[in-house]
Design a binder for these strands. Structure first.
Length: 154
DNA sequence: CGGTTTTGACCTGCGC
DNA sequence: GCGCAGGTCAAAACCG
């Protein structure tokens, strides 16, 4: 396994909810990760669902790859597919098939730069997984560490 | 047989 | 309201 190095520091976003960062993975490909809170309307919806206790997380991965589905070690069940406007490629919707796990993800290819795959994760897994891909784990860990220090600075 | 994919219908938020 | 765009459901097909 290659070493994952942190390439860029993000510019503090205008939105207080979002932060983003780039990782270089295995020499060739770069992963752009973005973490954002939900928009106000979505927050409202969430809070009415579970009493407003839980914070929802969203991670957006942008990878440059020929393969649409990057194996992150989790088991996903596809539950939908849609054509999005201004995009010739369709977007796929997946849900984590672990029982009781509510994590969702969307996979979508850029219309302009079709080499880029955008993977959006909604929520966090509250369970372990045997087959966790090391690179994915490492990226998320680095990203969380980064976010912690970022939050401390403010 | 049990889980997954497919696919059109259904639901919902939002802008006009 | 209405219609569009995006997100989800669910029944049938599919597959090991």
């Amino acid at each position: 396994m290659e070493k994952h190095e942190l390439v860029l520091f993000p510019t503090p976003s205008a939105s207080s909810y979002a932060s983003e960062i780039d990782f270089k993975v295995a020499q060739s490909s770069k992963v752009h990760v973005k973490r954002e809170g939900f928009l106000r309307t979505q927050k409202k919806k969430i809070s009415s669902q579970n009493g407003g206790k839980k914070v929802q997380h969203r991670y957006v991965f942008e990878t440059r790859s020929e393969i649409d589905i990057l194996d992150d070690g989790y088991k996903w069940r596809k539950y939908g597919e849609k054509n999005v406007k201004n995009n010739k490629f369709s977007r796929s919707y997946y849900r984590c098939s672990y029982q009781g796990c509510n994590v969702k993800k969307q996979i979508q290819r850029h219309s302009k730069d079709e080499q880029v795959v955008v993977t959006t994760y909604d929520g966090m897994h509250m369970h372990m997984v045997e087959n966790l891909t090391e690179s994915f784990d490492q990226i998320l860990r680095n990203f969380n560490i980064y976010n912690q220090s970022y939050n401390l600075q403010r």
